Amino acid sequence: MTHIPLTSRHTPYKVPILAVRYARRFARFMESRGIGRRALLSGSGLEPSQLDNPDAFLTMEEVMAVVQQAQQLLGDELAPFQFGQQLDFPAHGLLGFALMSQQSQSKLTHMIVQYLRVGLPVMDMEVSSTSRNIHLHLRDTWDLGPVRPFVAKIYMGSIHSLASQVCRSMRFECDFSSGLAPTRWQAQARCAEFHFDSGSCQVIMPLTERMPVDSVDTSYVLARERSRQSEQPERVTEVVAQVREFVSRDPGRGTSLDAVARKLDISARSLRSRLAEAGESFRDIRNDIREAYATRYLRDTSMALDIIAEKVGFSDQAAFTRAYRSWTGHTPGEVRRLAQN
């Protein structure tokens, strides 16, 4: 797959999609390695103060710029995996809930995948299984180019942090190289083996009927106690992130409140209620994303206005023009003329 330079990326890369709390955690991790926020954010267009806004989201363009800078500054193959391990997903109550209600490794694996898809929509995962193993395949849906191994290691570290508490062994297969001896990786991840230059990027875990509950009692208690303090804001943020992800991938007429609710396997009423709890509405989120798409199309392309209208979910150009003027105070034609001057 051809890597697209950051300066020429298409509109989806410019739509806010990743909750800033993950960037803030990454900044703290980098600071522990002696790399300050300003150095980390250099070239991304972000200011250090933006990481302190709890309601902010980063675009994929910004995420990739930050990761690219971190990769250059760190020079440490293990660092992204270690960061993934430190994301502390059990604190969100995920593991505790799985132990309490599922006690199934297969179901827990699907919960891990769902959680990572929502919280970190940078790579996607597919789950498959045989009679013996569960396979988590990492998919590059954003054309991450040279930063893909770095991002994949973050995901693998996160998966290890969760799954190692209920899985006695696992195998990491990476379709990229490593200059480190396998023993260095195994020392970082207990009960795991690593294989590089493989044909795919995946995590393989043995499939068992029941999880060894006795070995995770302590983890469950910690997860439950931590979740009491953080479940509400995290849950609210996750719903907003999910809706943003779905709308960003298709801002057209097909992405309605009902359609997104079906994808989340909840009722439209519940989705509306959860967004209201976060101080958001589906209409506002969709309009924000449509405005971002439309503005980029107007400024960066010569696409006809009726085509732009269709792409961002309007049945005709007149309806699009009225909506765009209500969002920005300008007509699409005015924005395009200003961009061409």
Rank of each mutant, 00 (worst) to 15 (best):
M1K: 15
P5Y: 04
V15I: 15
V20F: 02
M30D: 13
S42A: 14
P48T: 05
S49P: 04
Q50A: 10
N53F: 06
L58E: 14
V67F: 06
L74G: 01
L78C: 07
P80Q: 05
Q82M: 08
F83S: 13
Q85R: 12
D88H: 09
P90C: 05
A91S: 15
H92T: 15
G93L: 00
L94A: 05
S106T: 11
L108S: 02
Y115H: 13
R117L: 11
P121T: 09
M123E: 08
T130V: 05
I134Q: 15
T141H: 15
P146S: 07
F150G: 13
I154M: 10
M170F: 05
D175W: 07
L180T: 00
T183I: 10
Q186L: 05
Q188L: 03
A189L: 03
R190E: 08
A192H: 02
F194H: 07
H195F: 08
F196K: 07
F196S: 07
S198G: 08
G199E: 05
C201W: 14
V203E: 02
P206H: 04
L207P: 07
R224S: 10
E234T: 15
R235E: 09
V236D: 14
Q242I: 10
E245R: 12
K263M: 11
L264S: 07
S267N: 07
S267I: 00
R272W: 11
S273F: 09
Y293A: 02
A294W: 00
R296I: 06
Y297S: 01
K311V: 04
V312Y: 00
Q317C: 09
F320S: 01
G329K: 10
H330F: 14
H330K: 15
E334G: 05
R337I: 02
Q340C: 01
